[in-house]
Amino acid sequence: MATDTSSQPEIPLTGGAAPDRKPLLRIHELHTQFETKQGTVRAVDGLSLDLYEGEVLGLVGESGCGKTMTALSIMGLLPGNGQAVAGEINFEGKNLLQCSGEEMKKIRGARIAMVFQEPMTALTPTMTIGRQISEAMEIHLALGREEARERALELLDHVGIPSPRARFDNYIHQFSGGMRQRVMIAIAFSCQPRLLLADEPTTALDVTVQAQILDLIKHLAQEAGMTALFITHDMGIVAGSCDRVAVMYAGRMVEIGPVDDVLLNPRHPYTQGLLGSVPSLESKPGDRLYSISGLPPDLVSLPTGCKFWLRCPLADDRCREDEPELEQYGQSQAACWKVMPPRDVAA
């Protein structure tokens, strides 16, 4: 790993956020690792990211680029022997990485909530959905069982479950995929957290339901003035739902900026590749869909220099030897030696 941490900017650049906004969550130089027989897997490798109050930030990248591990590092719920070995995650004046188990339990669910990808497996099959919603409120909001039940019924109604009273005592197998995710959302919003982490909340759903669920999350988050981190690989979701977008590759950030700017003027070849692999209305039938060649690097033995050079059409010797840092280009930042000039400047 060739990252030279001392040369990182002292004050993280706002990455396209409005300057008057206050950061709610600041991730600084996060390193999350797993020990395996093959070696140390660097799932998140020196990620710095600020989330500002009230914004929706999309975190995109291929599978295995560290998006989910970033979210689970924030929650302190890394699986197996995964550990955030270095860095800071500052939230409401606390470094979450140094919080005790008890402190984290007070934050999880109450201050930071998470919506998971697969609503079938992410909800307990042997517990009624009503209880799954109400139990967290009993703990965090110190509600009695009856009060929590009433609140849960309101929440069920609010997330669009018809006849909540009849549905309260149902089990998850009696719900459709979209309904399950609505329950998941009701759980996440139940204790009015400040920050919502949504890990591919619509990936497992039918296309027709995806938009409804996204709208629901957006609507509820706006209503509650909540900050949200949307983890996705769907550029359509980013375009439709997010204020800013951060692109991750091999555990680090390669580009971040306002959605419009990044989608219209992607600076990093990887971002361009991601956008290029989305079919557009202009493409003709029979056209081959663009795809980024090769596979993401092995997180046990990362290449030197830019982590993307193996797959990058523009890579040269410098890319192979020196790792680029995030630099400001227009409203966005990108970590690339070969950054394209923004289209509006070139024109």
């Binding site: 929650m75 699986p79 999880r108 998971f116 497996t121 992410a122 307990t124 139990e135 967290a136 703990i139």
Partner: peptide, 23 residues
């Protein structure tokens, strides 16, 4: 232990004792 719904229960901030007993 490794199931997604157990992680969800923990993500809700449930005490470990209740995670075991209920979930």
């Amino acid at each position: 232990l490794g199931k997604d719904f157990v992680r969800t229960a923990r993500a809700k901030g449930m005490p470990e004792r209740l995670v075991v007993a209920r979930h």
